[in-house]
Design a protein around this nucleic acid. Structure first.
Lengths: 346, 346
DNA sequence: AAACTTTCTTGAAACGAATCAAATCCACAG
DNA sequence: CTGTGGATTTGATTCGTTTCAAGAAAGTTT
């Protein structure tokens, strides 16, 4: 009877443990553990035999137990602002690839700009005792980040600066990006530039705008108008463009610098539907250079942020901090780069 | 001396455990556990007091230990084909929202169509003993799914059918989608339709094509041409469109049905750059109805797949199977829906 | 006030793998 | 044949929770 039960493979039996492997292989649990974690300490014969048994029994290490005893979760947590924006999935991809090289999984969460959801993810990561955390903060999370660090979790801030000098960070020079954008448009012969994006409260927006303003100030005869929007999606771009189309012809801009590519796509749509020619009548310049920018009906010029690189650099900082908690705090600033396509070159 | 050390908050001390909470609160560990897991079994006074202490000490439950003892990870794992395709992030979003209602976290992995990466994620999920798994399979994973199920992990297949009747699944009726697409184009007065997408090996492609072919067969005077591509991204669309542009004028299609919206965007770009008017000269119809379809320069008509709904329905099936492992296997087929925009209506 | 209930609280026993000091094995020199 | 040192292997102990039978306390009924 019991033989039959054991033979039935549909059974939902207790899963195989190191102990089972050990007795089946005729060795001690310590040896099985060594086979798993330091194969070089085990004689070749034993190693092969135990691995064989592990395969036969279909043993899979219980990570919860490993983690409890070892005191550390190999996983790294990441909270991004919005997984629906390709910018962030690209950064996350950079992170995941680099972590993969170190055999570490990534647990990705999206806050959707919501402080509550952000907090929920932080709870999760704390309970999971992740070994590292990458975050683009939304709410006031500094105290929590400090607590995480006290508990031994390395923390790196991505695509932002915390202001305090407590955590390493990786960001792109937005003032520079703003300068690059304005310079390009002016060199392409444009004089009346509109910047569409917002909210102005975001550091990124402020900086990009400041950079663009500085350049415009250096070029007499050029003007910059700021059209603030509440969000940074295609809809915002559409609305922003429509508000510009409503202006008297003489005041209309001949170039639009969008806060990001999503906004730029919205702008492109609104202009196209209104019969405005791009780039002939109005040039459009995006920001980020997500894949969709290159795939737009009129390929979008864009200020490229090195997205995957941000991810991999942030990961390197994190891995460094994980190895040596006393490692120096570093703020790495990457350079944006202009990618010229059809939308700005008549 | 030791007092000073304790007072130093920069210390990276061993973290607070239930035992610490218990002794600080003057109760037993059992009570602390009850406060955490069945607050209703604890007297209000004790409850309040213990919660206070938990807050003061900054206690955070160690999930690895919880999991080890309880034998179950609350998390659900999901492997999608490609996080960079908004279709999948939308499905994942539906999953995450529904899981959130049950206080369960989602661990999301992207296989990128690569059987190796898919397998790595399955390893991870097995080690983590996730309680449920949602997957759009790439490689030959049936044996592994069976094993996972034997171990007590519920499994639901998303956006595919396994063929075998072993696992519940959620998919959209692709033959129907193909019919809807062709019908719409023909009713809009188009006669020469091209279907761009591939590879043909994918069931989805086969079905959409079959549906479209059936409709064309029912309408004398209409023809369908299949342009196979290796991938399903914008680049494939671009190339497919270019190959059609190379045809002699009389053979050119007056409508293009793209296998998905990414492909459709690529088609739109190629046609726009070639000076072909959309929809006047050629209509374009996409599939999926991702947000970018609505945001294209010429808003794309598309066969909408209920993405978030797929996610939530799949999650419901999964939660059901988790509660009752013997629950009946169900294949749920959702209906696609036509969304008409500018790209198909002259 | 005794005899029951019902409500709370207790604390020892898991869960499964990693660790590490101690035991055993083995090859080889003396 | 003994002794030595390095290479392997052993197995009891530990990690932090949850669980649950049993005990204590408080309340109710007779």
């Amino acid at each position: 009877m019991s033989t039959i039960a054991n033979a039935r493979s549909g059974e939902q039996g207790r899963s195989v443990s190191v102990k089972d492997v050990a007795s089946a292989a005729g060795v001690s649990v310590g040896t099985v553990s060594n086979v798993l974690n330091r194969p070089d300490k085990v004689s070749p014969a034993t190693l092969a035999h135990v691995q064989q048994v592990i395969g036969d029994l279909g043993f899979i290490r219980n990570d919860a137990a490993r983690q409890l005893r070892a005191g550390t979760n190999r996983a790294v947590g990441m909270v991004v602002l919005d997984v629906r924006n390709p910018f962030f999935t690209d950064v996350a991809r950079g992170v995941e690839l680099r972590l993969g090289e170190h055999g570490r999984p990534l647990i990705l969460g999206s806050s959707g700009q919501d402080a509550g959801r952000e907090s929920t993810y932080l709870d999760l990561f704390e309970e999971q005792r992740v070994s590292g955390l990458l975050i683009s903060p939304v709410g006031k999370v500094l105290p929590r980040l400090r607590r995480l660090r006290e508990r031994g979790t390395a923390v790196v801030v991505v695509d932002r600066r915390t202001g305090s000098r407590e955590f390493s960070s990786v960001a792109v020079d937005d003032v520079r990006g703003g300068r690059i954008a304005a310079t390009h448009l002016i060199e392409a012969g444009r004089r009346r530039i509109a910047f569409i994006g917002g909210p102005q409260g975001l550091t990124q927006i402020k900086h990009r705008l400041r950079g663009a303003e500085a350049v415009v100030a250096e070029h007499p005869g050029t003007v910059l108008r700021f059209v603030e929007t509440g969000t940074m999606d295609a809809d915002a771009g559409r609305r922003g463009a429509e508000s510009l189309l409503a202006l008297p012809a003489r005041e209309r801009p001949d170039a639009i610098f969008a806060a990001n590519d999503l906004v730029a796509l919205g702008v492109l749509q609104a202009l196209t539907l209104a019969g405005v020619r791009v780039p002939d009548d109005v040039a459009i310049l995006g920001y980020d250079d997500i894949d969709f920018a290159a795939s737009a009906a009129i390929p979008l010029s864009s200020v490229r942020q090195p997205r995957e690189e941000m991810g991999s650099v942030a990961t390197d900082l994190l891995l460094g901090a994980m190895e040596d908690p006393a490692a120096q705090v570093r703020d790495i600033v990457l350079e944006p780069e202009l990618v010229v396509r059809r939308s700005t070159t008549g």
